[in-house]
């Protein structure tokens, strides 16, 4: 588990910004009253590339896969959730919160998976 403040700050920043941007863009494209499944799929299609680009931009400063994977997940999930239904004034905040949630998920998964496999 990462314990260095600089990298924890970078991880949070990458996930919050990526989640917020993905959610905001999805909110702009997908009307709030669309059928949830269609909105979710379009949100995923918007969130995935945003997540990849976010991970790619933050990677030189904070690490490779440790930044790219949580950021990509944050973008994808934020896009999907906001695509399912939103109010325009809360999309970016919702995406930022989802980004933090995705990072916590990655930290917990890392705690379970790290170390000797065999």
């Amino acid at each position: 588990m990462e314990r260095r403040v600089y990298f924890i700050f970078g991880d949070v920043l990458a996930c919050v910004v990526t989640g917020a941007v993905a959610a905001w863009l999805t909110g702009l494209v997908v009307p709030a009253d669309w059928f949830a499944l269609v909105g979710m799929i379009i949100g995923m299609a918007i969130g995935m590339p945003v997540g990849m680009i976010g991970g790619f931009l933050f990677s030189p400063f904070f690490g490779a896969f440790e930044v790219m994977l949580p950021a990509a997940l944050s973008g994808m999930i934020a896009g999907m959730v906001v695509g399912m239904g939103h109010t325009m004034d809360s999309t970016a905040f919702t995406g930022a919160v989802i980004g933090v949630g995705c990072l916590v998920f990655c930290y917990l998964l890392q705690a379970r998976l790290q170390g000797e496999v065999y």
């Binding site: 896969f65 790290q114 496999v117």
Partner: peptide
């Protein structure tokens, strides 16, 4: 002989 996960099961 040995496989050790460094980050998730992606970096090893």
């Amino acid at each position: 002989g040995k496989v050790t996960n460094v980050y998730l099961d992606v970096v090893k």
